[in-house]
Structures are given as structure tokens and as C-alpha cells.
Computed example of a mutant assay.
Amino acid sequence: MDQRTTLTQHIKAPADSVWAVVSDIPGSAATLSGVESIQLLTEGPYAVGTRWKETRAMLGRSETVEMWVSQCEAPSNGRGGSTTVKARQGGADYTSRFTLAGRDGGTDLTLTFGASLTAPTRFSRIMLTVFGPLGLRVTRKALAKDLAEIAAKAESL
């Protein structure tokens, strides 16, 4: 059982500036109002294998999730880039894929977010059927806010 949503934000900044914001894990708590704190678990530049713990406020609660970069292609030579971040928590796998594409002198940043249950029980399937649409609406709202905040930061660089 998968839940998936895709949103796109046009940003009036070049792909390199957008990438600088998307890949700035230590600075994401200052950029994204929903992120309370970041704890880096690996050293070095943003790349496949970069790991961190992110504490995020959602529905009035704070949740800490370990996240890692599973795919990374920085923009180069005027071409867009992409990165995939994964997380696993509470019997679910989460995937966030950011894709950058140049358009109209700026960059379209597309975020595809997906969640899938790793070992669904009958109860979890019922709960997903009943509450999944609400959870997806809440998630879309939070992701749209993240994209707008990434845009604001990238446009200020």
C-alpha cells in the first residue's frame, strides 16, 4: 500500500542556488520552519550516504527520524539535478525525490514524496484506508510550505 504525492514550485533562481539550499542539511532547520533540529551523523559534503537525524513538528508533535541520501546528482553545465532522500520509521518507508529543471530563467523544483508500509497488518491497512487521505492532505500542505521556504531562501542568495 503506497501513498504518493508530487508538487512543483517555480523558483526565480538558477538550479545551482536551489541545489545549494536543498543540499544544505545543517542549514535546513534555519530554512524550513517545520524542522526543529538537525543532527548530522556523517561528515563531508552532501552525497550518497550522507545521514542525519531530523526533528520535525507535525500535527503538534515532534518526531525525530533518521534520514539518508540514496541518490544524488548535482546540477552541472546548465542541466538540472536530482536527489533522493530516504527514511524508515514505524513500519513505513519514506522516499522524497527532489528534481530540478530549468524553466523561464529560473528552476522548477519538483518534490515527489512517497510512503509505503513495509509489513502491513490488517489493522494498518484499515487505518491507511480510513486516515490515509487526511494524512496525505496534511503532508501535502507541509511539503508545499517546505517548497515555498526553499524558494524564498534560494531567491535570496
Results as ranks from 00 to 15, higher is better:
Val21Thr: 08
Ala57Cys: 11
Trp19Arg: 07
Ile38Met: 11
Leu134Gly: 02
Ala74Ile: 02
Asp146Ala: 08
Pro75Gln: 03
Ala74Asp: 01
Ser17Thr: 01
Val65Lys: 02
Gln3Thr: 10
Ala74Met: 05
Gly114Glu: 13
Thr107His: 03
Ser28Ile: 05
Gly44Lys: 11
Gln39Met: 05
Leu32Tyr: 07
Gly106Lys: 02
Gly114Thr: 11
Pro14Glu: 07
Asp2His: 13
Thr118Tyr: 03
Ile11Leu: 06
Glu43Lys: 15
Val130Thr: 12
Ala30Arg: 13
Gln71Pro: 00
Trp52His: 09
Met58Phe: 15
Ile38Arg: 04
Gly27Val: 01
Pro75Leu: 05
Gly106Val: 10
Phe98Lys: 02
Tyr94Gln: 09
Met127Lys: 14
Asn77Asp: 15
Pro26Asn: 06
Lys86Glu: 14
Arg4Phe: 03
Leu111Gln: 09
Tyr46Ala: 06
Ala151Trp: 01
Met127Pro: 00
Ala74Gly: 04
Gly44Tyr: 11
Gly27Ile: 03
Ser33Trp: 04
Gly102Arg: 09
Ala30Tyr: 00
Phe113Tyr: 14
Pro133Thr: 11
Val69Gly: 01
Ile126Glu: 00
Ser96Ala: 14
Ile126Arg: 12
Met58Ser: 12
Gly102Asn: 09
Val35Asn: 08
Leu100Tyr: 00
Leu134Trp: 11
Val138Trp: 05
Ser17Asp: 12
Ser76Gly: 06
Ser116Gln: 13
Thr139Gly: 00
Gly80Ser: 05
Leu157Gln: 13
Asn77Cys: 06
Thr55Met: 07
His10Arg: 14
Leu100Thr: 09
Asp24Val: 06
Ser37His: 02
Arg125Gln: 11
Asp24Cys: 07
Thr129Asp: 12
Glu43Leu: 10
Thr5Lys: 03
Glu43His: 13
Glu73Gly: 00
Gly34Ile: 03
Ala151Glu: 06
Ser70Leu: 10
Gly91Pro: 02
Glu66Pro: 10
Arg4Val: 15
Arg140Trp: 04
Ser76Leu: 00
Ser116Ala: 14
Gly102Leu: 06
Thr107Pro: 02
Pro45Lys: 14
Thr84Met: 12
Leu128Cys: 01
Asp2Leu: 15
Asp108Trp: 08
Gln39Thr: 15
Ala148Arg: 05
Pro133Glu: 13
Glu66Tyr: 04
Asp146Glu: 13
Phe98Val: 01
Ile11Trp: 02
Asp108Leu: 07
Val35Ser: 01
Ile150Met: 06
Asp24Ala: 14
Glu54Arg: 03
Gly44Leu: 08
Ala151Leu: 02
Leu7Tyr: 07
Phe98Arg: 02
Arg51Gln: 14
Ile11Ala: 03
Ser23Arg: 15
Tyr94Glu: 04
Arg125Gly: 06
Thr112Cys: 08
Leu117Gly: 01
Gly91Glu: 07
Thr84Ile: 14
Ser33Lys: 08
Gln3Lys: 07
Ala74Tyr: 02
Ser37Ala: 12
Leu147Phe: 04
Gly49Ile: 13
Thr42Arg: 11
